[in-house]
Structures are given as C-alpha cells and as structure tokens.
Design a binder for these strands. Structure first.
Lengths: 191, 191
DNA sequence: ATAATAAATGAATATTTATTCATTATAAAA
DNA sequence: TTTTATAATGAATAAATATTCATTTATTAT
C-alpha cells in the first residue's frame, strides 16, 4: 500500500468495482476489468489491496456507510412525525435514484458469501436511529404495531424495487409519481 | 441429451442449481458443485445441457413460470376486489416463504448478464392478468392512480424484502404478523 | 542535478474451473 | 443370453482469471 494514498485513484477503483459488481455479481468481477475501467494496471490493484476479496470488502464498508447516511442524516430534520418521516424517505429514495449502483452493490453484498458476521452487526448499528424513530412512532399510535424490522424491510424493499424498475426501464419519474410513491410508503406504515 | 429424460435427475440438477446460485450468484456457480450436490458426475451435466449458460437459462424458464403461477393462479378466486387481491397477495407471499431460493434465483436472474431480451418479454407476459386486475381496480377508484408497473414493483419489492429478512434471521412469522404485512400492502395501494 | 525512495506496470505464472472424451455401466432388443 | 444402443462417469485438457514480481517510471530529498 502506498504511503500517501492517492484518493483519486482509490475513488476510481471503488467506482469501477461498484459498477462492475452491479453488472456481473461478485464472482463475476474480474480484476483485469476493474483495472482497465479505473485506468490502472492490474498489478496496481495489488499495491492497494491484498486480494479481490479484500477489495470488495473495503468497497462495501465505505459504500454501506454512505448509503446508511442517506437515510439517517435526514432524521435531524426536526418536525412532526410525518415531516421527519417524509424527509428520511425522500432522502433515501433520491439517494437510490442518483446512486443505483451503490444501492445494488450493498443489496447484493448481504446475500454474497463475502459478508462477515461482524459486518452484519456493524451494518445494523447504522440503522439504530431509524429503529428508535419508528418505535417512537408506534408509541404515539402513528405506526402499525409490529416488529420494526418488518416495517423497515417493507419500506426498503419497495424503494429498491421501484428504483430498480426505473433504472432498468429508463423511466423518468415525475414529481407527481414520486409523491404517490411516498403516499404508498406512508399509507403502508401508518394505522 | 438422453432420449427419455430422467425427470428425477433433472429435478435434482435444477434444485442444486437454484440453491447454489442463491448462495454464490451466477458466476459463482461451479459445475462441479452442481454435480456433487445433485448426485451426478460433472460429465453428466453436459449430457443434459450444452453449457453452464444453457443450464442456468433452462432452470430460469421453468422456475419463472412456477413463480408467476403462484400469483396469477389466485386471480381466479372470484370475489370482491379486496378478496381477490388478498388471495393473490397471500398466494405469492406464502409461495415465497416456502420457496425463498426460487424467489431469489428469479430475482437475481433479471440483473445478471444471462437474461435475454426475449426472456424479459416472455416474463412480462406472465403478469398481464395482474396488470389488468390492477387497472380494473383503478377504474373503480380502489387503487391509487399511477403506472401499474410502479405499484407492482412496490408490492413485489416489499414482499421479497420481508421474506429475505425472515429467511436470513430465521424468524417464524405468526399469523398476526402476516395479517399486518398484508395490511401494509393493501393500505399502500388503495386510495 | 543526482541519488534514493516509492509507486506503477503488465507480461509471466499459478490457480481455478468449464468442458471434453475415452471408458465403463446400464438398459433394450434380438 | 448375447448383442447393440444408450447413458453416465470422472480423470485429463483447455480456458479463464487471480496473483506475482522483475522492471520501469515518477517523486522526493540532498
């Protein structure tokens, strides 16, 4: 590993990795392709990372933190339950629309053999504030009374699938469409 | 290919393929592992299939039809809009709970390089009855007015993610939980 | 400007894995 | 039963791909 990491180079490698994994899956990722796409030599990848597995894990940790941030940051919009929820939902939805590869990368990782138990736990930690927010909403009778993990799964699954469809079919979502998507999310969790 | 296909053998191969792809992705699928898991020799796989790619595609076509059937069959429960929708939703949800590997296999396929344009179109055809049902629901002011593709994505994404969570965390869903999950789905699409 | 150090390179090698095919086992026909 | 045809086998081969390392290029210090 170089003493002073060239952040531009690292960013290029991360970007290439994410884009290629999104297309081909983890086992399909070829180091030669990552190298070509990020504009370095294959050998250079091994200057920065011990192995393909190490590369993938590094990219995961960085990306997962960013993705989680897209939701959690919005929590600190103070307002009514509805306003805060709306800020979080839109925060995440728009993030996914802008960064579908990152969304897909993180999603895939959880079902790949690559993820470690430690990383699963760390990952869950990121979402603790969201759990608290939903539990608070249940106490105040806004939110349906059930395991918040199921609520989160419902919300996340719906957003991801919509974004995947939009990206796959190259549809342009209008503001009105997004509002109805939000209404679906809101109506689904409230009682 | 043997003249009289040994259906037991084919089933074993399909089952092994689905389970392994679910764990390792398409590129991660190893013919030697499929062989071992299905109790045949590697060479035998090439008696039945021209290549790994052919094997995967064959498994996809059979599995996708079965998965689509899990939703569509329930449409012919005649009743109110709510009753029919409930039958379809539970039909698909329960199918996914019982066959998470098949659900995951089909889901992954759509984002793998393996799918062909022809298969995408064929796939969409399977769901035409569901489209019609939702459009009818919109005409009668039951269902939110938006592109039904978005509604389907929302419903499917939510179901898949919940099932994935349940399987991942080995939770046992109680009847009450399932009812609330259905309520989330119903509330999300109705206006 | 020169030397010393660090980083990058990519062709060569090692490893992994799909595919083949000569051989063996099984089933069907005579 | 013997012959013929069909199916299955798995070790050997070919192809694909991760990793190494001797060499080159760039950067920093004197």
């Amino acid at each position: 590993m170089p003493k002073s990491k060239d952040q531009n180079k690292i960013n290029a490698i991360h970007k290439a990795t994410i884009e290629l994994v999104t297309k081909t899956g983890f086992s399909g990722l070829k180091m030669a392709e990552v190298a070509k796409k990020s504009g370095v030599a294959t050998g250079t990848l091994y200057v920065y990372y011990k192995s393909k597995e190490q590369l993938i894990n590094d990219v995961f940790v960085v990306t997962k933190k960013e993705v989680a941030g897209a939701i959690i940051n919005s929590k600190y919009v103070k307002g009514s339950f509805n306003e805060t929820f709306k800020a979080m939902w839109y925060g995440y939805f728009k993030y996914c629309l802008l960064n579908p590869e990152k969304m897909l990368f993180v999603e895939q990782f959880i079902y790949s053999g690559y993820i470690t138990e430690a990383n699963i736990i760390k990952t869950n930690t990121y979402f603790e504030p969201l759990n608290q927010f939903l539990i608070e909403g249940q106490k105040n009778d806004y939110v349906k009374k059930m395991d918040v993990a199921l609520i989160k799964a419902h919300l996340q699954g719906a957003i991801h699938e919509i974004v995947k469809m939009v990206v796959r079919e190259r549809v342009k979502l209008k503001k009105k469409d997004m509002n109805i998507c939000f209404a679906m999310a809101w109506d689904s969790i409230t009682q």
